[in-house]
Structures are given as C-alpha cells and as structure tokens.
C-alpha cells in the first residue's frame, strides 16, 4: 500500500468547511482532518482491511445505482464505512478510482451541501452497443419526451401541459399503462426521487398547479444540446432551426464544463 504524502485536496477542503450548517457540525468534525491526522488514521487499519472496505463500498454504490437512487454520504457511513469513519475520505477516493478505472463510471456529487452522489458513464454510447432492452428502456423513452418538452418550452413546463401532450402518445395519468403502470406515480414520484425531474408547486395557485424542471441527474446525464439533437432527429429538422433553444443550448453550465483529464487516467 503506497502512503501518499502529498496534500489531498478533498481533506483540505473539509478543513475549511468547519463553518458549515449546524446540522452538519457533528458530522463534519470527523470529516475534517489535518493531513497528519489522516495519515495516522490510515495506519490504524491494516491494508487488507482497508482493501476489503473499499470493495464493500464499491459494491454498495453499485447496488444503490440499481434503482438509480442518489446516494447520501450519511447512508454510506451508516451502512458501509461504520467504524472506519476516520478514513472515510480515503475510502471514498479509492472507491471512486476503482469505479472509474474498472467500469468507466464516474462518481459525481450532485449536491455538495448535503453530499449526495450519483454514477454517470464516462463512455459515450455508440452504434452497435447492444445494451439489454427492458422496462427501464421504455421509461427512459418517456423521460426523454418530458425533458424535451420542458427544455423546448423554456426550461419549465406546467404539469397540465405535459399530460396534454402525453395523452396524444396514449399515456394518461388516470389509466394504468401497459409499460409504465401507474404513470402519474412514475413521473411525479419515481423520476423525482431519482433526481431526473423536479416537481414543484407553483406559488399562489389555487387549486394548486405544479410545474416540472430538469433535475440534477438529468443535467449531469444529458445536456440541453443533446436533447435538442433528439428533438431535431424526431422532427427531422436542423437543430439550428430552433433559434432560441439552440442559443440556450450553447451556454455551458459550470458543472458540464469539459474536464481536461478524462483520458489521462494514471
């Protein structure tokens, strides 16, 4: 096991976060460490034990990803890390490295305050990549339609408008669907839990109206430009013909700025 002597960015970030929210205070104390403290903690455990823990952590992350549910740091500590809490940062770093190296999966933080993670793919889907097709594939189709409607209509869409269009596709919130079952639940609950969509009440509306926005997972897994390309393909038009949307899709959000070192994997 190589002992890394250089400063670890994740740890130094933690030390500066001591002024975090009150709820985090107690948690943060164990996550904020000086470099020497971290070193000493590592040495408390044997290399085999650490290796085993990293393996378990990777398993845990893959299991949580089964249902595409975001992963909370608190759960990671409670269910996997447990008494190895003092080296949490190192464990997570190694798990992240393993996921990237072996599977090509990137562990992304979608909520830096509450420390919530998802897995996204570093490999681009190409022609001939015959992935298994199942119910989740159908659900993705539905989700993409909704994301398209939201984006093309200016990044927010009223719930009633969404259902109006979906009805044309034989998808009705009042009826049980062949592929989706309880569609209303799928769209307003499952997709929201998975962080694909945000479902918010429009203030000062009575009876209450709701609107949809893209969720943080959608922002990471796809992009405005990609969805514009999808719409363009379906409608057989040039993406540039949607002038407003095309311009909107050109703004690169900070979270999606291209990472320089994607290919340089040591």
């Amino acid at each position: 096991m190589t002992q890394r002597r250089r400063g670890r960015p994740s740890l130094s970030q933690n030390t500066s976060r001591l002024q975090g929210g009150d709820m985090d205070m107690e948690e943060d104390v164990s996550f904020t460490q000086t470099l020497t403290q971290a070193q000493r903690n590592l040495e408390k455990h044997s290399p085999e034990q650490i290796s085993l823990k990293v393996g378990e952590l990777v398993q845990y992350l893959l299991i949580r990803d089964q249902k595409k549910l975001p992963i909370k740091r608190a759960d990671i500590v409670k269910n996997v890390v447990k008494e190895y809490k003092d080296i949490y940062a190192e464990l997570l770093l190694r798990a992240k490295k393993a996921l990237l190296e072996v599977f090509g999966f990137q562990l992304e933080e979608i909520d830096t305050k509450a420390h919530i993670y998802i897995l996204i793919n570093t490999l681009e889907r190409g022609e001939g990549d015959d992935l298994k097709v199942n119910d989740n594939t159908a659900k993705l189709g539905l989700l993409t339609v909704i994301l398209s409607l939201i984006f093309m209509k200016g990044n927010t869409a009223k719930e009633v408008a969404i259902w109006e269009t979906l009805r044309r596709l034989r998808v009705d919130p009042g009826e049980r669907h062949e592929d989706f079952g309880d569609v209303k639940k799928l769209v307003t609950d499952e997709f929201v839990k998975q962080k694909y969509l945000e479902y918010n009440k429009v203030p000062h509306t009575d009876p209450p109206e709701y609107e949809f926005r893209w969720g943080p997972r959608a922002i990471k897994e796809t992009s405005k430009l990609k969805i514009l390309e999808f719409v363009s393909k379906i409608q057989q038009k040039d993406p540039k013909s949607w002038v407003t949307q095309y311009r909107d899709a050109q703004e690169i959000p900070r979270s999606q700025a291209p990472r320089a070192s994607t290919s340089a994997r040591s």
Partner: peptide, 17 residues
C-alpha cells in the same frame, strides 16, 4: 492494462447479466 475497450465490454455484459 485495463482500458476503455475492457470497460465497454464489462458494461455491456453487465447490462445483460
């Protein structure tokens, strides 16, 4: 060494089981 070709293989096999 392990590379993207291995990753893609693993990903697709994973999806089928």
């Amino acid at each position: 060494a392990i590379s993207e070709s291995h990753q893609r293989f693993l990903q697709i096999l994973m999806s089928h089981g």
